[in-house]
Simulated assay, not measured.
Amino acid sequence: MAGADRISELHDSILTRILSYLTTKEAVRTRCLSKRWRNVWASVPVLDFDSADFWSYHIPSSTSEQLKCQDKFVEIIDAVLASRQVQQVDRFRLAWKYQVRNYPRHGHPLRRWIPYVVQQLPRVLSLYLEPLYDRLEIPDLTFTCSSLEEMKLQVDCSWLGSPHPPLVALPHLRKLYLGRFYISTDFMDKLLLGCPSLEELELHACCLFISQISCGNLKSLVINGCYPTTEIEVSIPSLQYLKVTVMSSDLLRKQDIFSKTCHL
């Protein structure tokens, strides 16, 4: 029949697969297409939130209008998570730049979002954040999500500090990216012991308070633009790829850079 809506006739599993390639904001908009589409978005196993979708570059960040944009962003994430109830999350991505509002350390919205996401046993977790001040801590639950296979954490502000979870238990984690953290010996030891399946590790612009990286399963190690405080011994028998770009601990000496890439 001419003009037939064949897409809407597809099974929900196919429709949710199609919507998984959209951002969550775009997926939610499909509810307006027809009654058939009203609740399909709520079953999409991918949640992708980006503050850039709500930010206007033409309005100064200090204005009340930008505060309203940020509050709207938080409200939408809260509403989406509440609407999904116990629907499984396969991938969760949050890119939150230009956080013009200063949240209390223990009152940041991330502290209510992460527990929900962890309960849904995601495979992939990606957090890119730009808090106003150094009052944001990655919730400890992030480091005990047993279903995770890939994780990317980056907090762009002045040095965030070293994560200090009491426990790291990520048995299925294969890929890990950490950006702009202080990496202490205690945290690195917990990380490598708590991630027995880890194959790829990338540290980006981190301050490294460690003297050794020792791991039996790691195949790829990238240390990109980091600031080591001492020499680091790498003891990784299974390593196949190594890339190192380090900068002087004296942040003013930008020219003091060492770069090395090896295929082993």
Rank of each mutant, 00 (worst) to 15 (best):
S184E: 12
L191N: 06
Y182S: 13
L173G: 10
L148P: 00
D189Y: 12
A205H: 11
C195Q: 06
E233C: 10
S162A: 10
I223E: 04
T185C: 10
L148C: 02
M151S: 00
Y177W: 11
Q212T: 15
L127V: 02
I223R: 02
S146G: 10
Q212E: 15
I236T: 07
Q212F: 14
L191T: 00
T142M: 00
Y116F: 15
I232W: 06
L148H: 03
E233I: 09
W159S: 03
L129C: 00
L141S: 02
S147A: 11
P165N: 00
T142Q: 03
S214K: 15
E137V: 03
I236E: 09
L160W: 08
S158H: 02
V117E: 07
Y182N: 14
E130P: 03
K152H: 04
M151F: 01
Y182P: 04
A205Q: 11
L125F: 02
R123V: 00
L170P: 05
L239D: 10
D134I: 08
V244P: 09
C215W: 08
Q154K: 13
D186S: 10
M151N: 00
S158A: 08
L193N: 08
F143S: 05
H164I: 12
T185Y: 05
Y133G: 01
H108P: 05
S126E: 04
T245G: 06
C207Q: 15
P171W: 06
W159I: 05
P228T: 07
H108L: 07
F209V: 15
E150V: 13
V118Y: 05
L201W: 09
P122W: 01
R123M: 11
G194H: 12
Y133A: 09
L176I: 04
D186L: 09
T245N: 03
R112K: 08
G225A: 08
L198D: 07
G216F: 12
L110Y: 07
R135N: 12
S184C: 07
E130V: 02
L170Q: 02
L218K: 07
S214P: 07
V118N: 11
L170I: 05
L201C: 01
E231A: 09
A169K: 01
F209P: 00
P131E: 03
I138G: 04
T230W: 14
S220A: 13
L121I: 08
S147W: 12
L178K: 07
S146A: 14
P122N: 01
A169Q: 11
L178G: 02
S211G: 15
Y116L: 14
E150K: 13
P228G: 01
C206D: 08
A205T: 14
L198W: 12
